[in-house]
Amino acid sequence: MPTRKSTIFFVLAGLGAGALAVMVAHAHYRHQKAQAAWNESAALVKRLDLTDLCLFTDARYARHPSMADRHTPFQDSPMAMEHFPSGTLISPPPHLRPQ
């Protein structure tokens, strides 16, 4: 008797759900394994008094967003609009937004 199409569908859907479960388990495993590396990075942050992640290096307000001042979009002149691509990815830190 040939395999029913619905059986194939349920097997494939089960495999898809299984892949999601494997993803979650893998994330948990990597999380546990990363603790040592995170502790090393946290120790470096503490030793050098660092304040920001090194995600972007093209603009100073993207390299150190938490240290940026209120006038960074106009840093070169009052009419100099944002022109760094990284500036379009990040939003201003909460302490620079109007309360």
């Binding site: 304040t51 920001d52 992640l53 995600l55 967003p65 938490s66 240290m67 691509p85 500036g87 379009t88 990815l89 990040i90 939003s91 830190p93 909460p94 302490h95």
Partner: peptide, 22 residues
Amino acid sequence: PILRDEILRTYDSLFDWRSGLL
């Protein structure tokens, strides 16, 4: 003064969905 809590919150809202490219 910039508090550590503000530094951490900076990264919580860093890739806010309202920022340009996102």
